[in-house]
Simulated scan of single mutants.
Amino acid sequence: MARSEMPSRPEGTSAEMLFHLGMMYCLGHEVEQDYVAAHKWFNIAALRGSAEARHYRCEISREMTANQIAEAQRQARAWISIH
């Protein structure tokens, strides 16, 4: 996991920071490329108002299976429920 994946104050985590996490996983920059993780972070960022995150989430969804998307959504819900 990226060190920045665990913000010290998750409730204050900005949509921009969450979008950045999504981009890191989408591109495999400083972390192993992982579309499930990218989709999760894009989903959370989109819920916090990021139009860019909505766009990229849609784009990577085209490269993912239905099971991968469902897993990403499950992970996003789990993260939101504890933060």
Rank of each mutant, 00 (worst) to 15 (best):
T13C: 00
S4I: 15
G12H: 13
E30F: 08
N43F: 10
R3S: 10
T65V: 00
E16K: 14
A78I: 11
L18F: 09
A53F: 05
M17G: 06
Q75S: 10
H55L: 10
Y25M: 06
S14D: 14
H55Y: 12
A15D: 14
Q75H: 05
T65F: 04
N67A: 11
M17D: 12
Y56F: 14
I80T: 01
G28N: 10
V31M: 07
E5R: 10
Y35T: 09
P7K: 08
F19P: 03
E11A: 11
R3I: 09
S4V: 12
G28C: 07
A15R: 14
I82A: 03
G12R: 13
A66P: 01
H39C: 03
T13Y: 00
S4Q: 08
V36G: 14
G49E: 07
P7N: 05
R57I: 04
M17K: 13
T65Y: 01
G12D: 15
E11K: 15
A2D: 02
E30S: 12
A78W: 00
R77F: 00
E59Q: 07
A45Y: 11
A53N: 07
H39Y: 15
N43I: 11
G49Y: 09
A2M: 07
V31H: 10
Y25L: 13
C58M: 12
H29C: 05
C26F: 03
F42M: 12
G49Q: 07
H83F: 02
M1L: 11
G12W: 09
L21C: 09
Q33G: 06
R3T: 09
E59P: 04
A2P: 07
Y35H: 02
